[in-house]
């Protein structure tokens, strides 16, 4: 059997998937545009989350905090401050969520797994509570409506212009993926991977692991903020519950596996599954929880990871 070089397979896959993403709006309904836009939002979020979890080995239970901060910032800017430039709103969202990440991350990375996870959760809960406490600003449990964003003079309302919103999101998705790819394959990326494999060893080759864990944390919050910013006008509404959905990004990452494209694939499957399942049952959190349990017990490497293992198994046995 002739061996197809791995590089060619990867390039082929890349071209096909990019093409699919580009032509989706031309063949699908507005609902599909909405769905895939949401999937891309979650993919960006999961990509960032995976820096921290898949590459650096830090499990956070509170990443919804930065997603929520990004979403609320956009809501504020578009609705409350009536600045309808989407670009400005997104920029502000990224800045504020990253700042939060810098501060919170600084504290959290000092601690090992269990405390790290609990601390990140505590901070998310804290923001959640803040939303209710300052209900006169944030709208409390009713949340806030998100006004229409504009890109220069283009109306980017997700309802009136779903195709436009989709391409806008896709654009940021491509950038996010490209940047993530560069980061992961850089010397910095290797250091992160080494930290996950053997933190102590990394200290002994002269790297302050605390500092690099912090950097990784900051990156992940940047992505989370961007994701939240793109989410807000898509859904049209922001509610405090956004701060407590960390399980979703966690599961999307788990589902896909902690490789590079795992989180992307996992997000797409997750969003499609969620919309399908919630359409005919109100037991979504129950199902999500059960799925997390099932995946933890049975498929620790996620879909992509398990597939990769099976495929390389098959390839190896064919060659020999």
């Amino acid at each position: 059997m002739k061996q197809i070089p791995e590089n060619k397979i990867k390039k082929f896959f890349l071209i096909i998937s990019t093409s699919i993403f580009l032509i989706i709006p031309l063949i699908g309904s507005p609902y599909l545009d909405f769905l895939i836009s949401m999937a891309l939002v979650y993919a960006i979020w999961a990509l960032g989350y995976n820096f921290l979890y898949g590459y650096t080995g830090l499990l956070s239970f509170g990443h919804a905090a930065y997603f929520g901060i990004g979403a609320y910032t956009v809501a504020f800017i578009l609705t409350k401050f009536s600045i309808n430039s989407f670009l400005i709103a997104i920029l502000a969202a990224i800045v504020i969520s990253t700042l939060s990440g810098i501060l919170i991350g600084y504290l959290c990375v000092r601690y090992t797994a269990i405390y790290f996870a609990l601390l990140t959760l505590a901070f998310a809960q804290f923001f959640y509570a803040l939303c209710f406490r300052f209900y006169y600003i944030t709208g409390g449990s009713d949340g806030m409506h998100v006004s229409t964003p504009y890109l220069f003079n283009f109306n980017l309302s997700a309802i009136e212009n779903p195709i436009g919103y989709y391409y806008f999101t896709l654009f940021f998705f491509f950038i996010a993926v490209y940047v993530a790819w560069r980061i992961v394959n850089s010397p910095f990326g290797k250091i992160l991977q080494a930290i996950k494999e053997n933190t102590i060893r990394v200290e002994f080759i002269g790297v302050s692991t605390r500092k690099y864990k912090w950097y990784s944390f900051i990156l992940s919050t940047m992505y989370s903020g961007l994701a939240g910013a793109l989410y807000a006008p898509l859904f049209g509404h922001v509610v405090p519950d956004l701060f407590i959905i960390s399980a979703e990004v966690l599961f999307a990452t788990l589902l896909g596996g902690t490789t590079f494209i795992g989180p992307i694939l996992g997000s797409i499957v997750f969003i499609c599954a969620r919309s399908y399942i919630s359409a005919f049952t109100i037991y979504w959190p129950f199902i999500l929880g059960s799925l997390i349990v099932a995946f933890t017990l049975l498929f620790p490497s996620g879909i992509v990871g398990t597939l990769e293992k099976k495929i390389s198994h098959i390839l190896k046995s064919e060659v020999s």
Partner: peptide, 14 residues
Amino acid sequence: LLLLFGVSLILQDF
């Protein structure tokens, strides 16, 4: 942590 997180979701909805 992951497993128990999932369990807590199940129990909450339960």
